[in-house]
Design a protein around this nucleic acid. Sequence first.
DNA 1: GGGCTAAGTAACTAGTCAGTTACTTGTGGA
DNA 2: TCCACAAGTAACTGACTAGTTACTTAGCCC
Lengths: 218, 218
Amino acid sequence: MASVNAQAAKASKSKRDPESVRQRILQAALAEFSDKGLGGARVDVIAQRADANKRMLYHYFGNKDDLFLAVLEHAYRDIRSAELELNLDNLSPEDGMRKLVAFTFDYFIKAPYFINLLNSENLHRARHLRRSQAILDMHAPVVGLITDLLRRGIAEGVFRADADPIQVFITNASVGYFYFSNVHTLSTIFGRDLSEKDELEARRRHVIDVVLGYLRPT
Amino acid sequence: MASVNAQAAKASKSKRDPESVRQRILQAALAEFSDKGLGGARVDVIAQRADANKRMLYHYFGNKDDLFLAVLEHAYRDIRSAELELNLDNLSPEDGMRKLVAFTFDYFIKAPYFINLLNSENLHRARHLRRSQAILDMHAPVVGLITDLLRRGIAEGVFRADADPIQVFITNASVGYFYFSNVHTLSTIFGRDLSEKDELEARRRHVIDVVLGYLRPT
DNA sequence: GGGCTAAGTAACTAGTCAGTTACTTGTGGA
DNA sequence: TCCACAAGTAACTGACTAGTTACTTAGCCC
């Protein structure tokens, strides 16, 4: 307790807080890369949004590309670790899958930056992500969740026997991702704001129905 | 016949072919915007890819943004008109829907530029598309196709009664779009090339199963 | 207190970029 | 043949960009 207070007192008197500056840059970069894409984001703007000196951006992250990779790792780590906390083991296969699909949809609402980050990374052919062993290691456990749900569902006769975990993982992401990634064009085309609450609720129900409807035995 | 030959002879002797230059610029722009996004594409590169003088790009299209909109209109026109030629009326609701889903998936393979163009346009919040009445007018007929299929399927008791045409339109696009838009990150994550023929065939079968499985009556 | 290093400030730099300017050439119609 | 205008060439321009340089300040440890 005394050491926490000593640290807090020290931090409030200090003119320098490297970890805070570093985090502010990371968050500002996440926002700027999400808004503008990797190519459109400007390091001056990131520094400004972070209320930091541009020099510090290079100091902490090296260059623009490496900053983008740091942002990407942060984003992936967030969603993948949240998925692992869903505790699907304790649910029926159907409820587990329902919870996972709903979680994914809700996550895209909560973390809208994720989609534009992935779009940018794919525009650059995953060249950043290839350099990150951390990101690569994040996915096996999540696919394992789906594999387990499918296995249980098939064993109980409530899921179709030909469901493939990776295809289901991709489809689970698909039905929400596309909606959000194209929300501007779709809203314009259909002349209604697809990011409004009622629209989101309708879409959420639909995506759950799509995945659960597909999984019904044939 | 004589007039066709006269035109061909005239064209082959001419040093100027404005329509050809214009088309070359449009195609080069489509490629460059698809590869690099709107922000990353360079007008010098587009001109070079078109084997045209940069001045002509401004001459024909005004500026970079307007060129992007021309490309977007071209891309939408292509997919939307192809959809209308599917002749789904003559098929059972199930076969019609199967054909549409397969068509959409195959279209993304055939016209890979479409996805990156839409990603760019959404990154820019559909600000180009809003200026195009032509694009806005292209969608009602296609949604009408799905509405008809669903209506027939529900009447025949082979589709679920709660299926919504717009949601199905979006889901039809979702299950393929996400796969292709994220093919680089997904391939890296799963350590396999998801653009290979076998992978594409597996995914194609899956997306048809997802939509048709979902549509089964409850 | 002093020295050293990390953290930080501010200005600079060379190259890039969309768009413009100045001029030339080709073509069609009178 | 001549003229006018569209199509075309090539160079230029001012602003922007990621990254660098030169220097200062803060904080920690001896």
